[in-house]
Amino acid sequence: MASHAATAADLHHDEEHPPPVIWSAKTPINLMGMFFFIGSEIALFGSFFMSYFFLRVAGEADYSSWAHQVGDLLPMNVVTFNSLILFSSSVTIHYAEISLLRGSRFGMKLWLALTILLGAVFLGIQITEYADLVKHESLGPSTSSYSSVFFSLTGIHGSHVLVGLILLSVMLIRTMRGHYGTEAHQHVGFRTMSIYWHFVDLVWVFVFGLLYVPGNWDRWGSDKAIFFGGAAVIILLLNLPRFIGKGAPKH
C-alpha cells in the first residue's frame, strides 16, 4: 500500500472500500497491539507474583519456611539445564529473524524449527518435573499455600509456553508456504510473534529467579557455575557476528 498519500485525490475512495489509512504513529499496529497485550499478561503474572510475595512476606510467622515446603524439594540441576534450553530458544528465534532480514529462507525454517524443538523440550521437562514432584515428593498444588503458588505460577507460565509453541508453528507453516519477506511490511507478523516468545522467556527469568533460586542458594552450588557459564556462552553466541568480523548483529 502506498505510504504517504501525495494528493487529496488519492484519499477519495469508492463506496465499497475504506480509504487508505494515514497512520498517526510510527509503530505498525500489529506490534503495538502485541505490546499492550504483553502488558496485560505481565499484569496477570503480576497478580500471582503479588500473591507469592504476600504469602512469603506477610504470611504467618510460625508457618514453616519456603525452603522447607517447596524449595528443598525442587530438582535444581534439571531446572537449571531447562532454563538454559529456554534461553537458547530465544537465541534461535533471534537468528531466525536475522535470516529473515537477510532473505535466507532456509535459515528461517531451520532456526524456527530449532526454536520449536527447544520449546517443546522445555515443556516436556517441566511436565516431567511436575509428575516427579507429585509422585516422589508428595508435592502437589493442594499440599500447602506455597505449593499452590508454585504450581500456579509455573503452570500459567507453561500454558503461555504452549500458546507460544502454537504461534511458532503458525510462523513455520506460513514460512513454508512462502510468506514473509525482507520488506518491512512483509514481516511484521513474524516480529510480532517472536516478541511474544521473548516475553515468555523473560517471564521464566523471573519465575526461575524468584521461585527456584531463593531458598536454594547454597544447595544450588555447582549448578550456579553451569547456569552462569551457560548464560555467558549464550551471550557469546549472540555476539558471534561481531567477533568474526561481520559487524554488529543486525536488528
Partner: peptide, 19 residues
Amino acid sequence: GTNFFNSMLGGDPISYQHI
C-alpha cells in the same frame, strides 16, 4: 484444592482482598 486462602495450610484470606 489449592490453599491460596486457606489459613490452615499457610494461605491468607486478606491476600484475596489486596489482589
